[in-house]
Amino acid sequence: MRLWLPPVLLAVLLCGLSAGMPALEPLFHWVQPDKQQVIYERESFLFLLQNHLLLVLISAAVGTLVAVAGGIFATRPSGRDFLPLVSQVASIGQTFPPVAVLALAVPVLGFGEAPILVALMLYGLLPILRNTLAGLEGISPAVKEAARGMGMSPLQVLVRAELPLAGRVILAGIRTSVTINIATAAIGSTIGARTLGDPVIAGLVNGNTAYVLQGAILIGLLALATDSLFEALERTWDRRFSPQVAV
């Protein structure tokens, strides 16, 4: 269970700091002595954290569903024609800077939460798609042949052999996607989403370093907590599946 200790500790620290930021007022007064107000109060940090998490969770869920479905389609006999294009698009798409994608969403969809969600979904599904393709294509044909030889239907081969074998690589793709999206959602507060980026932007605009610090620390903690959660998930996955895979 030592595996799950870092994510739990970081999550507790994150929630504790979000709830108890006002208690640190003296500290921030020391950082920013020339300002009356040193604790960001336009929204509660807990609300911003919740909103930030919600954006990332929804985009990760939708992105995973679409990307895995797309990856499965492009590796079946009926969709194989699309494989070269899909993998090209997945790799060219990742060349686009996330900020630029976020900025392009505004002229098309307007300000607010919706354009950010769409941008996060579209951009976030690329690494998952790429890893799904890599995972499914990386399975040796002999394994699939053996599964078919055991009398499995194509669907059974997919669900019971291919997806478990490719799962670890797909999980790594989701991790990359979520890491990028946490950072991009933070920048999203420049286009009207209420995320933990808000205090940073407000602080930069008003020259209040204390606000900037509060936002930056919480964003950093959120990223670290999520990353350590994925670390634990990947290790658990390895333990559960690797012995069988090695055979």
């Binding site: 890491t179 610090l213 930056a216 964003i219």
Partner: peptide
Amino acid sequence: QTIPSLAVFGLLIA
């Protein structure tokens, strides 16, 4: 690499 860019930029200012 894990820390989001906005946070790193913000943390360096002070």
